[in-house]
Design a protein around this nucleic acid. Structure first.
Lengths: 253, 253
DNA sequence: TAGTGGTCTAGACCACATG
DNA sequence: ATGTGGTCTAGACCACTAT
């Protein structure tokens, strides 16, 4: 039964692929997300109840629940026991995903560019050694890059990587983002721990960013781990605050 | 069967409460998180497989999976198909939760204090009206507060709230965090959308923060929604960058 | 009282990683 | 070949909300 004021686009149930590798819950959540972002389901609208959706699609309730949960976690839907599931009021914004700045810019189609300023294998200083979980003084790869969008500098990126990843060369790094290159080597970043802060520009940073000497910069420090829990990359970066902000959606548990 | 090199603290299965309101998956995940944070399960250690754990605890596999998933989402565990579930290498840090700065400081036992600088009902300017989803010029509550830890200023907080929440008074706001007061009124924040950035200190900010004129400040802008998706609070805040950073753990899906 | 989401069970089959 | 997590089913009972 569908009560009068609930919503469910028929197209979501059309031609679900049960043979391919894409999970059913993911097919459903992807299509539902698309309908919401396209505005085909209005903010505040109530979805049909889970059991009705499950029957309509010929799926089980846990599968539907999982699809809905994906969008709850993204901040697109809100569930209330005894009431139902609703589309969130308020503008939908992009999530901070586990991607690199390069990919952010690439997706925004602003034509990212990279200049490799430094690229050398050097002994690990105490901070980098601790972050990467290697012994102090052992070889690590140090990178310093300037990131631009078009001709406007946006960030200065400093990274430290374990020595066995030192085969990344300058040309590759000017053409691709670091995470893209790592993925191409079969290394997937699974978890990252980040600290975001601010400070004055130091040294040559104001020159590289095209800002005033001693002006503010937005900073991020990150340690990234692969799916074995091994530290893959330690970085501290600074961004032009008039060109870049971090956006997040936080959902209460 | 337990293979030789897997781990499972017996205490986790002891005295699970099937009658109370606390879900079984939550009881399990809480205890497991405690064992990991206490160091009783070493980083890199592999847990028993899910079916074995389920049998050992007399629970179903989906319940165990959900408990484990909670900690995967927190960045404490990593799962690999065909391999198993492992404790992440690398230090465990605190999560950015959906709490207010007051509670962060309170938990850190640094003795938070608040000075209410401004507290008045005024017509909504365009930016606040858009953020809160009210019509421009309608009444909203404007707050400006200075937050300190001990006697050191940490942040300047500016908030805009719908007029029906204007019964928050000065004294309350000096004693409690804003989110605590809202919760006490039965309003739970469910989703927040945040932007983090940096800029120079403006106006009287350097004086209120005890920093240099024109020095850098860390900024956060936030719109918070309750469980109906209604906008409850719009704020833009600035923080002393030497006293405060934002920490996040990001987990790939 | 009726309807909703929240939790839980006891299985099943599959894809993937490892030896 | 074996063991692991990933997905899915078809139910069940409960707590909460609204009328």
């Amino acid at each position: 039964m569908t009560t009068a004021d609930t919503v469910w686009p028929e197209s979501i149930g059309a031609e679900l692929d049960r043979t391919g590798p894409v999970p059913l819950y993911f097919q459903v959540s992807t299509r539902l997300e698309h309908e919401i972002r396209a505005g085909n389901i209005a903010p505040g609208a109530r979805l049909e109840n889970e059991i009705a959706i499950a029957e309509r699609l010929g799926l089980s309730r846990p599968t539907i629940r999982r699809a809905i949960q994906e969008l709850v976690d993204k901040g697109l839907l809100v569930r209330r026991r005894g009431v139902g599931t609703q589309v969130v009021q308020g503008q939908v914004t992009r999530q901070v995903e586990l991607t690199s700045l390069y990919e952010d810019l690439d997706n925004a189609q602003q034509g990212p560019a990279t200049r490799v300023l430094e690229h050398e294998v050097r002994p690990a200083d105490p901070a980098s050694a601790t972050a990467l979980g290697v012994t102090e003084g052992s070889d690590i790869l140090y990178l310093r890059r300037q990131r631009l969008t078009g001709t406007t500098p946006i960030a200065i990126l400093e990274n430290y990587l374990p020595a066995d990843l030192a085969d990344l060369d300058r040309d590759e790094l000017e053409q691709r983002g670091l995470y893209q290159l790592l993925r191409a080597r079969g290394i997937a970043i699974r978890i990252a721990k980040q600290k975001i802060g601010a400070r004055r520009a130091e040294g040559d940073e104001h020159a590289l960013l095209g800002t005033e000497r001693g002006g503010p910069v937005l900073t991020m420090e990150r340690i990234a781990f692969d799916n074995t829990g091994r530290a893959i990359e330690f970085g501290h970066h600074c961004y032009r605050p008039d060109m870049y902000t971090f956006e997040t959606t936080v959902v209460a548990r």
